[in-house]
Write a protein that binds this DNA or RNA. Sequence first.
DNA 1: CGGCTTTGTCCTCGGTGTGGAGAAAGTTGT
DNA 2: ACAACTTTCTCCACACCGAGGACAAAGCCG
Lengths: 377, 377
Amino acid sequence: MRREGRVRRMTARPANAHQARLLRLLRDGGPNSRAQLGDQVDLSRSKLAVEVDRLLETGLVVADGLAASRGGRRSHNIRLAPQLRFLGVDIGATSVDVAVTNAELEVLGHLNHPMDVREGPVAVFEQVLSLAAKLRASGLVEGFDGAGIGVPGPVRFPEGVPVAPPIMPGWDGFPVREALSQELGCPVMVDNDVNLMAMGEQHAGVARSVGDFLCVKIGTGIGCGIVVGGEVHRGTTGSAGDIGHIQVEPEGRACACGNRGCLEAHFSGAALARDAEDAARTGRSAELVGRLEAAGRLTAADVAAAAAAGDATSLDLIREGGNRVGHTLLASVRTQVYRQSLPLATGNLPIVLGELGPAAGVIGAARLISDHLFSPA
Amino acid sequence: MRREGRVRRMTARPANAHQARLLRLLRDGGPNSRAQLGDQVDLSRSKLAVEVDRLLETGLVVADGLAASRGGRRSHNIRLAPQLRFLGVDIGATSVDVAVTNAELEVLGHLNHPMDVREGPVAVFEQVLSLAAKLRASGLVEGFDGAGIGVPGPVRFPEGVPVAPPIMPGWDGFPVREALSQELGCPVMVDNDVNLMAMGEQHAGVARSVGDFLCVKIGTGIGCGIVVGGEVHRGTTGSAGDIGHIQVEPEGRACACGNRGCLEAHFSGAALARDAEDAARTGRSAELVGRLEAAGRLTAADVAAAAAAGDATSLDLIREGGNRVGHTLLASVRTQVYRQSLPLATGNLPIVLGELGPAAGVIGAARLISDHLFSPA
DNA sequence: CGGCTTTGTCCTCGGTGTGGAGAAAGTTGT
DNA sequence: ACAACTTTCTCCACACCGAGGACAAAGCCG
């Protein structure tokens, strides 16, 4: 006997492409009347009714009252089952984000915890599960119907396993998908964090209704999500967007990956150093002023050292760097790109900041798993 | 009454996706037995028989004797109608290539004629039609069932119209597809020449069975064909692969497009100059030796001037530049790419020369139109 | 020449989607 | 309040399509 009040988790999957299509329409467009759905799918009314009825039987969608009239008899509203829950996990280099969404990918709860990814998969997973438990305890959710997870490095997508990740060597080959699926008892999909950020902005952010775009994330590392024809392009090895370690300066600064002159080592580091010198000159941090006078200039390493020594300004710089630098950075990127390319190519090429911030990753993760579950079995 | 000996041109189109699939299998795999086709398409024998019979009725395919036994009753061979003919046209900056192929895209005849694309669409079309007439006169073909044409610049693909092409300003907005279709009396598709080169190498060249690759063409200009998941990616404006006018040197050499420091202005020009100095030092060309002694160094402009003055070596340099430079160039590109990227990304990244040479463009053009015609109407 | 395999054809049968008829449920105008 | 019109939903008959089995034809092998 089923315990009362207990919510059955999603077991069914769409039986065919039509049902999958309907589920995605309801996910992306929210509740819809049967008639509205009919306008969008090019099926006969009878066929549509059959498919909707089957979805109702499986419990994936539920009836939701009557829709407003469009001039005649009112249609019945349909929506995705309200108790469906997806878990979105975004593992960054220095923190993990965990969020729970409904089937329409609206974030119902979101937690963040600072944590170094280099502590390894076991420790990070413990943290992820503890955050997920906290969300569960809040009463928003009794269980998860699926989970998406992003990691800061290349992923062999079909298996959900990181491969040769430069900034998280301990994760190489760790069966992320398999392990998390075991722990949570639900389907899991794994992807690169920047790909998920791209999917998040595509679903609910600045890239809504854009079919082709690049999503560049400048954080601890630099990565690039590539969306072609509405689909994320991962490349054979899952490293298609791994632009952080392209060499931009032949004999440049040493990088964590072992090479010299990587984009990542220069670009994000240099920006941080510039900001630190600013802070020193305006006297905001005695610690930085001291280091500046001693060395004549500041580097990213100085900021890191000052932060380790407890300097609040440096900590702020590191923490907020991404956001604060954003707008100036954007202007300079725009200038460079527009000057260095043909007007035809850039004429309709907006370069803008993402609008979801830290939510992009977890929303993208939820979308990843929903795309997986809302596809024919 | 139909005149005797006259070949009816292709009028039918595949009626559904299954037929389209079969036509492409026959195009790419040559004649096949019904049984072999059955192995590849996942249809019941009855269904397959029906679709093949319908294709036979339309005349798109013909029976072709008995296949070898595979241990039991021998199957009947099927092949694409042998009289089908596609015209492939490749308009380069300094010459036009025109070839005729059968339905399996085998080149039956190929003509080249030096010609400056800047003479404009009317003059170039006249030349193309004259070359096509010459092929017709050779008896290989009585008419064309479709034509593909490549032009050296961005194309608005659905309409088949060049847009803002830097090296052929007179072609901007000229209705290439419409005009050629009128003249030839058959369906025509238009694309960028580098995209067609990529399709050619994909069909019959070095990129066979490769789903994702870039095809870089270094000629008068520099362009890049982008193939993602087996499909050419053109971008919204058709300028996705237009890398020739990316600025690589902030205050570099002036380019025909009006900017300074374009990849195209530097890269191909510099290589040419290096080769010219070589030629001068080894005393192969008195003209170049003179210019070298006068100026201390040689530039692409010097080579052009020497060629204009009738210097044979310079003419050869310009004409054969692409091929001869190929291998050295390739080595240097390889070195740069491999050093500047992560091993994961480049581990399985061959960088090789195309193997079709000047045939790549026309084969790609034939493939473009065959893809169009061998798709559901 | 007899068994075995493969291929082609025919036929039946179940599933599927279309489109019409008609009822149910609203809106608008008088 | 009522008539006329619109929209939505359900039911049903019908055409079509494709799968798969039965069987015949054609070939191989010993």
